[in-house]
Each structure stands twice: as C-alpha cells, then as structure tokens.
C-alpha cells in the first residue's frame, strides 16, 4: 500500500510540476469525458500472479550433482552472478549441499543411502516472517504482498544486518566489484555493484512478464513454483499427495521452499 501511495504522490508531483495539476486518479474519472488524460502506471497483464508464491522441490526427480548443475547455471547466467576466484567473496543465489548441512536439525547417522548422498538445492526461503526484513534498517530488503522477499539494490547501505539475521545463510555480499568476474553478461538484467547484499529474487523479473523462474524451467519438472493459497495449483497438489519438509521450521520464519524427500 505504502509503495503505491508513494509512487502516486510522486507521479502527481510530476504532473503538477510540468503538465497540469490534476492528480493521477482522475484518469479513471475523466476517461470518458475525453479530457486530456494523465500519466499512469500499470501492471503487465501477462504477469504471473499469486496470493503467496511457494516452491516445491521434488528430490526424487534427480540423482546427482550433474542433474542440478544446469539449474544452478541457468540462474547464474540470467542473473549475472559472478564467479569469484576468492572463496571469501563468493556470491550464491542457488546452490546445493548435502542433507546433513541443509537439514542440520534432521540429520541422523542412519539416514538412507539415497538421501545421504543426494545433493539438495539451497536458496532463499522467501519466508512468511523474514528475519532479514525485520533487521534491515532502510527497507532495502522487503517482502512483497505475494510473499517474495526482494532486494532493492539502489537502497542497500551494505550494513549486512540481513546476513546476520538470515538463519539459512542465503545471502551474499559484494565484497568487490562483481563485473570482472562475470564471463557473459545478460544484458536484460543488471549486475550489482560492490558493497550491496544480494540473494535469490524468485525471478521476480520473469514472473512480471509471465515467465516461470529460471530454475524451475531448467529442472525438468523437479522444481515447481506456484500459488500455495490456490488449492488447484500444482504446488498444492504435490504437497497434498506427498510428505514434504522445510528447513528449520522450528524457527517459525515460515519458509516457502518445500522439499519432497
């Protein structure tokens, strides 16, 4: 709400400055009167919408790191994620790790062989109650109404409070200029600059133009993204028919990434 009010005020301000004083909202009232119309901002009608986005990862549908690499690669490529040579400066949006690291509280000695050796995808959990958003002093990281937790790189001051707050280790910081470490730039998506935090954005830029997240697209059906409040959605059907787990549910952050094991 606050956002739309804010941009409304700004647009209204622009109109007032240069081109007449009528507020934007008059557009709707005056359309028929064939008066001069005011500028307005619309959503793309093709955009994919959800009450709350969620992701289900069906870990039965892949076997090895080789199956996951194309998924990670797809994300890295379209989001201009640098490949740093120094491990300290590493940037990761989506990656994979062993069960005992991903599910630290559910690991035991006698976990069956498949799960023990299977790599698990790790990414931002787009929490219901994100600790990072609570911690950010500038609202540079924020939760959208549809549940996606996003970064505004223009606003981030690089205090890294969100990184300390995130219980999943999903955030990365640009310890240096990432550009020299990006082999092939995707011109459709910006890079980042040194000194800001970044993380998975659930491909908000793709959802806005009607495309599914890149990882889901590259996963051969192992990753499904959809509206968890829509009982007809594919994510809900998967959750209805399969037992799924989440990372560190005891923290109450409400992660939106589900794993069918």
């Amino acid at each position: 709400m606050e956002n739309s009010r804010r941009s409304f005020l700004k647009i209204a301000g622009i109109s007032a400055l240069g081109l007449g004083t009528k507020p934007v909202l008059n557009v709707f009232a005056s359309g028929e009167n064939s008066e001069k119309r005011e500028a307005e901002i619309q959503k793309n009608p093709a955009a994919l919408k959800a009450k709350r986005w969620a992701m289900v990862i069906d870990t039965r549908k892949y076997e090895s790191e080789e199956d996951l690499k194309p998924i990670v690669e797809a994300c890295n490529k379209i989001h201009n994620i640098p490949k740093h040579t120094n491990k300290r400066h590493e940037i990761m949006w989506i990656w994979f790790d062993e069960f005992k690291y991903v599910f630290t509280n559910q690991e035991h000695e006698f976990v069956d062989d498949r799960v023990k050796h299977l790599p698990f995808l790790v990414l931002c959990n787009h929490c219901e109650k994100p600790a990072c958003v609570r911690a950010c002093p500038t609202k540079a990281t924020f939760k959208r109404d549809d549940g996606i937790v996003l970064m505004d790189f223009h606003r981030c001051i690089g205090c890294r409070f969100c990184m300390a707050a995130c219980p999943y280790g999903s955030r990365s910081f640009n310890f240096r200029d990432p550009r020299p470490f990006i082999k092939e730039e995707n011109k459709e998506f910006p890079t980042r600059m040194k000194g800001v935090v970044e993380k998975c954005n659930l491909c908000a830029e793709r959802l806005a133009v009607g495309k599914m997240p890149a990882c889901a697209e590259a996963s051969n059906g192992a990753i499904v993204v959809g509206d968890i409040y829509d009982s007809e959605s594919e994510v809900r059907k998967l959750l209805k028919n399969n037992y799924a787990i989440r990372r560190k549910p005891e923290l109450g952050a409400g992660p939106a990434i589900y794993y069918i094991v």
Binding site: R134, A135, T138, R155, I157, C159, R160, F161, K194
Partner: peptide, 20 residues
C-alpha cells in the same frame, strides 16, 4: 558499511522494526 555514502538512507527510510 559497504555503501557509506548511502548512510543517510537510515534517516530517509526510517524503519522502527530494525534494531540498527
């Protein structure tokens, strides 16, 4: 700070839920 010149964002966008 990673972006010290943006320090004043803390005042421009005051966020009472942040302990910082």
């Amino acid at each position: 700070l990673g972006q010290p010149m943006r320090l004043l964002n803390v005042l421009l966008y005051p966020t009472p839920n942040s302990v910082l």
